[in-house]
Nucleic acid binder design. Structure first.
Lengths: 152, 152
DNA sequence: TCACATTTAATTGTTCGCAATTGAATGTGC
DNA sequence: GCACATTCAATTGCGAACAATTAAATGTGA
């Protein structure tokens, strides 16, 4: 064994940023759960609703690009949102390959009920907005570098 | 509607740190996939192996506490690692409620083959080690604050 | 000792996440 | 116009992730 004293072991769990990110994502999920339960949403469903609240009548592909998810994930998720009467799924007239997702009145209305969610998360983070924005920008930059590697 | 000009909209997807973390976790997973495929591991299985490479012969509960996962996730995952001949699962003699997880020789041997993984991830991150360590510490601190909220 | 709570892992059921495949609609080159 | 590739959503199969429940082992108090 090499001497460990002044050595940074890259194979140690707690030294790995990916585990930090992985476990932070789960921690967020657990904080969101009780808040989103009241809205009848899961976290990925909430993300889809955030996309639709920004722009309605979007093809599945566009939602996927925003959230980095594919149809294998989104198709069943969107069917569940449709079953909950929050969205409608309709084939595009111009391009029959596309399925357009649009909000129902209930889907629109949910935006108001969801307004308190980010505030609760901010409180749970126990952190200033500016600190969070800085961290967010760093994480997004890292994510984009990783995604750049994937696309060769 | 309030004027949007100088306003930070907390309900906008790209303003949310949780989505940054969520999407970064998936980006990491996609970078890890081809590396771990060669080892015959998934990312959560790799995390369990990291724990075991640090300390062998551990109860399931300890692994769960390290990784923030419960038995509903770990039991089937560990059975798959056992089927792959990387770990053994044995009831503890002192406390029959516990199942102790220990590495097989193949499980031990895999540590050497996995040594190159963190370096590849570092390269994909395209970022200095010190920057990553700083980010990791910030994310861990945030995660721990979130987890503190969950436990009331 | 005996009733009772606690600890621990396993099980069940639902939802993500993704790779791989399928099939229909569209675009392209000749 | 017609073969061909491309695009897009849906499907299938597998592996997480977690809530809720079950069941066995252990600890505790009267």
């Amino acid at each position: 064994m090499a001497r460990k004293s002044s050595t940074f072991d890259p194979q140690k769990l707690d030294n790995q940023i990916c585990f930090a990110v992985y476990s932070a994502a789960h921690a967020f999920n657990r904080v969101y759960k009780p808040l989103l339960d009241r809205l009848g949403l899961t976290y990925p469903q909430y993300l889809v609703m955030l996309v639709l609240w920004e722009r309605d009548d979007v093809p599945v592909k566009d939602i996927g690009e925003k959230l980095f998810l594919d149809s294998g994930t989104l198709t069943p998720l969107l069917k569940r949102l449709e079953a909950a009467h929050l969205v409608r799924r309709t084939r595009s007239r111009e391009d029959e390959r596309q399925v357009l997702i649009s909000l129902t009145p209930q889907g629109h209305a949910l935006k108001e009920k969801a307004r308190a969610v980010p505030q609760s998360i901010l409180a749970a983070s126990d952190c200033s907005v500016s600190e969070l924005v800085t961290m967010k920008d760093e994480i997004v930059a890292l994510r984009d570098r990783l995604n750049a590697v994937i696309g060769e």
